[in-house]
Design a protein around this nucleic acid. Structure first.
Length: 920
DNA sequence: CGATCCCGCCACATT
DNA sequence: AATGTGGCGGGATCG
């Protein structure tokens, strides 16, 4: 039938006829080529068809035909027939489109179909148009339909052997749409690894082989990052309370989330990539999917998704942005709908009915294996991310490897494609990157914050700062200041990493949610098994010490070093910060996709296998916990202590990476030196942590407890100018070395890390005296080191130089109750807002946990960031803080131009700039 | 009128 | 500089 239909439709469609816009469209590329000359395929043409191997058969050059819908009109009967067919085929579609459109899809679908359509002949035009008129609707042209057509052309589960190449030009012409539209589709598909970019205009079709793995990863990440948020939104109220109240709570987690993305795309690439990519549809798509996967209900309203996603990216949400975001989400949703992953629904809330989408795709991913969530997954995810990663690394990941293939491609995307030669470098691995990560956190925080604020009760609490800081993602990056520069390109995203340290903190928080502690995560990670236990270390918890009086706090990372140690360091410290970004990134970075790409398609099958991966990966998974509902928290304290949580995520990556690198020392160094890898690792680890389930947490916690954490940093309250930034000084480092001037703006040349408060927030501050921990010095160092670049922090002044002995600190036990805690754990930080913390501190001090100032972030960058986010910031509470940018540095001028657009500075750029500035 | 979301300008990235 | 990508948002359509 179809066939017949096809032809019919072809005919019908054929007509391109329409014009009007068609013309316009054409401009781009395609248009209807049909109309045009059939043959000529468009400019691209040349390439077309043929080139790819397998690609589309249909394509025949000439006949391309089809064309598009636009054509419309189906003139004649054929259409009718088609319709019928269509209807049969897909209800939905038909609905919309009505038949005509349908056809096309059909056509497409088959790959085979070929061309007959060709004929479309022009003929019709005239007539067609008329006909068209009716049809014209948008529906026909809808992205969803277009996507179906697109998908129809390729097998869902292609043989690994065949690699199907997709020529954008061809497809565009075949489908009769502008290339721009194809990008929309491909970007989303790429985010799910259904395709990967091979070269310019060329994508490699992977099919759904890796879909589950990808989803798994996303789920893991999503849980970590968004689990809380989702929960939050779903249950806001409750959450709010908690959060407000306490410390952490779930919500916060958000921030942490970020990591996810990374994996997906590799892109991270360097700076450049970042810039655009950050916003890219790809990332947004991944995030969107994560939202679903992190949602208990599997239903996400556009509204919520837009808010969450916006925040990540930016702070303030202005209305226009919101609108834009929603538009994008519709685009993504259309594609996801075509993939049968989601379906549209409406959610009726108090306020009214809201458009929403329900996840109808797979929820459980086999791979995961073990645990509920999966360790395995974790690994996978990472892997996935990483997959691309470095060739070097490939090592382990076999299965991933497969991913790699696919993914890599993606990751590589552009870069690769054309230039194979340079494989990775360019892109950093993840889309997300740390920056994003940060931003996310921020956003989330912001969101949460907002929510909270909204909440009557909440209002009381001043969270602002946090938020602000959070918001600016850019800022975060800035943080990176650190030394790292080098890596930048790399996936690693060094910068981010740098940032991370801070971030880490955040991260932990994330983990926290899960179970309190992040600790749990890492440490335990029993699941992890994978080897990597070590990694877990990363983030250990870092407890902070609060000194009431002083502004300094010690953060102790309790890494689990013990375990890790081997690996250690890396993760821990480094990881923390970077975690987010890293997470994703690392892999990617490593791989960068460059290498393989498609080549190894083989993977697919493999993917499935958990085992291998797992090993590599590690667990990670625990993410779920995050999601967990917020249980009531226990007293914060406990949780807080755990603070450690942070890092978890990283591990994962590490695993992936495999680096065993342990590096503790490195950590510090790494930044400078080679940050990348380590970072990656770190990230991995983090992920892992995240992933772990509560159980893991528990373990972890325990472990943590035992473990010493290292005190890693001293926290300096931001008082003065920097309200936003927190300065962390590496504990390890010799204290002596550091000297902070009392004066306000003294410049410090100590290795330190500036962290956005938000990040800190995540960490639970603990004052616990008690905890003894062994601590491992090393890590710290690394940590510090990394971060440390010397900054001149103006604001610091206030800080008193209190140094806390690293050793001494212990994390509080934190762990004890991991389970429930999880939720809490976290993060309150964000919300918490410094204020809270402060207030708390006193209290807490005694208790193990102190919230501490949540630290506000530093704004170091802000300055720079400012440009970026100019608006952003939420006025909310403190703008001031926020803004303060000045203090730090200068704001970089950055690009301002864009101003609005985010684009402006790519994250990378930002970072760099920032760093520099800060550096000074 | 609000929800959708197509269209394509144009900035940014890559060649 | 040309071309590939893709952010973005106006404004058309749909419901």
């Amino acid at each position: 039938m179809e066939v017949s239909v096809l032809s019919l439709r072809d005919l019908a469609s054929g007509r391109p006829g329409r014009r009007g816009r068609a013309e316009a469209a054409q401009k781009e590329n395609i248009f209807d080529r049909s109309r045009m000359a059939p043959k000529t395929p468009i400019k691209n043409e040349p390439v077309d068809l043929s080139k790819q191997k397998g690609c589309t058969p249909e394509r025949n050059p000439i006949t391309p035909v089809k064309l598009v819908d636009r054509p419309q009109p189906d003139p004649w009967t054929p259409t009718a027939n088609l319709k019928m067919l269509v209807n049969a085929a897909s209800p939905d579609m038909r609905d919309r489109e009505k038949k005509k459109e349908l056809f096309r899809p059909i056509e497409n679908s088959d790959q085979s179909d070929t061309p007959d359509s060709l004929q479309y002949d022009i003929v019709e035009d005239s007539t067609v148009d008329e006909f068209e008129k009716r049809r014209p609707s948008r529906k026909q042209k809808s992205l969803g339909l277009l996507c179906q057509k697109f998908l129809a052309r390729y097998p869902s589960y292609p043989l690994s052997t065949e690699k199907t190449t997709i020529s954008l030009d061809e497809v565009a012409s075949i489908l009769g749409v502008e290339r721009r539209r194809i990008y929309d589709i491909v970007n989303v598909l790429e985010s799910l690894h259904l395709v990967s970019r091979v070269a310019k205009n060329q994508y490699c079709w992977h099919g759904r082989h890796n879909l589950s793995q990808t989803l798994k990863m996303l789920q893991e990440v999503g849980e970590l990052q968004y689990g809380e948020l989702m929960t939050f939104f779903q249950h806001k109220e409750q959450d709010l309370e908690y959060r407000l109240g306490e410390q952490r709570k779930e919500p916060v987690p958000d921030a942490q989330d970020s990591p996810l993305l990374d994996f997906t795309e590799p892109d991270c690439t360097s700076a450049s990539a970042n810039s655009r990519k950050d916003k890219s549809l790809r990332i947004m798509s991944q995030k969107f999917v994560m939202l679903f996967l992190a949602s208990k209900t599997k239903i996400v309203t556009l509204d919520t998704a837009a808010k969450i996603l916006i925040e990540e990216t930016q702070d303030t949400v202005d209305h226009s942005k919101f609108k834009t975001k929603v538009r994008r989400l519709y685009d993504i949703a259309n594609v996801l709908t075509s993939l049968a992953l989601i379906t549209k629904v409406h959610v009726t809330e108090e306020r009214g009915r809201k458009p929403a989408f329900k996840w109808i795709g797979p929820v459980d991913f086999p791979a995961k294996t073990d645990e509920p969530r999966g360790h395995s997954p974790s690994s996978d995810p990472l892997a996935g991310t990483q997959r691309g990663a470095c060739a070097h690394r490939q090592h382990k990941l076999t299965r991933h490897a497969s991913f790699n293939c696919t993914q890599p491609c993606e990751g590589t995307r552009r870069k690769v494609s054309s230039e194979p030669s340079s494989p990775h470098q360019e892109r950093p691995a993840c889309f997300v990157n740390s920056d994003e990560y940060c931003s996310k956190m921020i956003n989330l925080a912001a969101v949460c914050r907002q929510e909270i604020e909204e909440d009557p009760r909440n209002k009381a609490c001043p969270t602002e700062t946090i938020v602000n800081s959070a918001r600016n993602p850019s800022i975060t990056s800035p943080l990176s200041l650190l030394p790292v520069p080098g890596d930048s390109d790399f996936c690693v995203t060094p910068l981010p990493q740098a940032v991370f340290p801070v971030v880490q903190a955040d991260v932990p928080s994330l983990s926290l949610p899960n179970g309190i502690s992040s600790q749990a995560l890492h440490p335990s990670t029993p699941a992890v098994t994978k080897t990597e236990n070590e990694k877990p270390a990363l983030l250990p918890n870092q407890p902070f010490l609060c000194f009431p009086s002083s502004s300094l706090l010690m953060l102790c990372g309790s890494l689990q070093e013990n375990n890790f140690r081997e690996t250690l360091p890396t993760a821990g410290d480094v990881g923390n910060r970077s975690v987010e970004g890293q997470i994703a990134m690392p892999p990617a970075a490593c791989q960068k996709r460059s290498s393989h790409h498609c080549t190894t398609p083989s993977a697919p099958g493999e993917d499935e296998e958990p085992a291998s991966k797992k090993q590599n990966m590690e667990e990670s998974d625990v993410p779920l916990s995050l999601v967990v509902p917020k249980k009531p928290f226990e007293p914060p304290k406990a949780e807080t202590t755990p603070g450690s949580g942070c890092t978890s995520a990283e591990h994962l990556e590490d695993f992936h990476l495999d680096h065993p690198s342990p590096v503790a020392p490195e950590a510090a160094d790494k930044e400078s030196s080679k940050p990348v890898d380590s970072q990656k690792q770190e990230k991995c680890s983090q992920y892992k942590d995240l992933g772990e389930p509560s159980q893991g947490k528990e373990h972890i916690c325990k472990e943590n407890g035992s473990q010493p954490f290292l005190p890693q940093y001293l926290y300096v309250q931001p008082t003065a100018g920097l309200s936003n930034f927190n300065l962390l000084l590496p504990a390890n480092q010799a204290p002596g070395s550091i000297s902070l001037a009392a004066s306000p703006f003294p410049s410090v040349s100590v290795p330190c890390v500036m962290v956005p408060s938000a990040a800190l927030a995540s960490f639970p501050l603990v004052c616990s005296p008690a905890l003894p921990t062994p601590h491992s010095p090393l890590p710290d160092g690394s940590f510090s080191a990394a971060s440390s670049p010397s900054f001149s922090v103006p604001g610091l002044a206030s800080t008193t130089p209190v140094l806390i002995g690293t050793t001494a600190v212990l994390a509080p036990k934190v762990s004890p109750t991991p389970l429930g805690d999880p939720q809490q754990p976290a993060q309150p930080a964000l919300h918490l807002s410094p204020v809270l913390a402060r207030s708390c501190p006193a209290v807490k001090l005694d208790s193990p946990v102190c919230v501490g100032h949540p630290v506000t972030l530093l704004k170091l960058q802000q300055p720079s960031s400012a440009p970026l986010t100019p608006k952003s910031i939420r006025p909310a509470c403190h703008e001031a803080f926020f803004k303060t940018p000045g203090s730090l540095g200068d704001p970089v001028s950055w690009k301002k131009n864009e101003g609005n657009q985010t684009r402006n500075a790519s994250s990378v750029q930002r970072r760099l700039e920032i760093s520099t500035t800060s550096a000074d």
